[in-house]
Nucleic acid binder design. Structure first.
Lengths: 149, 149
DNA sequence: AACTTAAGTTCCTTCAGGGAACCCCAAAGG
DNA sequence: CCTTTGGGGTTCCCTGAAGGAACTTAAGTT
């Protein structure tokens, strides 16, 4: 489909989309996060075409989000989150929160998170890294940063 | 390219991708958020094909993320975030945080956020909605919820 | 030697994205 | 009144990415 590359834009959203914006990539990341680390597991769970899965895994490894790791002393590999990839899970947790709230309907959320620190079933909330107060769409003012063009 | 629909999966991530997972959609949302509300503004800023922009706007309106709003008493329309859409901006802020941290490089972040509550330049952090402690990839345990299949 | 399994690779078809040209409508200008 | 302008799309064709099934390779296993 000759898709436009977003990576060149002076925008962290566009650049992030260049890493995980392709179809399937967030779901692959989710699966690896929950312990589906191997090619055939991913393919079976997602129902994705093997060709596309190969492409996506290659891209995610190239971007440093996943690591390809040999096991069993033969040509077998499993995929693991890097630190860079683990921080992307934040994004998945926010997507989950929004989907739970707006799309789950009567049935309720398909998955629940239990927070280790407090032991409660809970979800994420966005806070200011500086003062700890809530930080959402209307709570901020945008200003040009050093990397602006 | 006959893309697979994710909306049927019992997964809030997949369902959310069905709403804003298509190429360009998050960038359209970002632009509307920062005040580019009209068709031609969006088209010029993003460099997106007019055809695809029409499709995306239609889909976002249909999903209740944007509202199409007449102005000027003639066939002119502008797009605004609904409450549902405004909460999606959380997602954009987390994408920004990750992109700033991992992809901005030497130049630094292209855009800075000033938090109204404290007046400081800051970014978002994920906290547990229940206890307020940090909540990231390793801090939670997943459990089947009521909407599981 | 034949079978199995994991991890891809190849090949073909179909449909979505890019891009440019075109269209419609309401106001403004002369 | 007639033409121009400008916003907001629609139409068309072309390319290339996603789907899907078959094939391949390399190392065990029976």
């Amino acid at each position: 489909m000759q898709r436009t590359q977003f990576g060149d834009m002076a925008c962290s959203i566009a650049r992030t989309l260049d890493v995980i914006g392709e179809p399937w990539s967030p779901l692959i990341l989710r699966d690896v996060w929950v312990g589906l680390n191997r090619f055939d597991q991913l393919q079976a769970d997602l129902g994705i075409s093997r060709k596309v899965l190969t492409e996506r895994l290659g891209h995610l490894v190239e971007q440093g989000v996943l690591e390809r790791h040999p096991y069993d002393n033969r040509p077998r590999y499993e995929y693991r989150l890097t630190a860079k990839g683990a921080e992307l899970v934040d994004l998945l947790m926010v997507m989950t929160a929004w989907g739970d709230r707006w799309l789950a309907g009567e049935a309720g959320p398909p998955v629940l998170y239990r927070h280790h620190a407090c032991g409660e079933i809970s979800g994420v909330d966005l806070r200011c890294a500086h003062c700890g107060e809530p930080m959402h769409a209307g709570d901020v003012e945008l200003m040009p940063g050093p990397g602006a063009r």
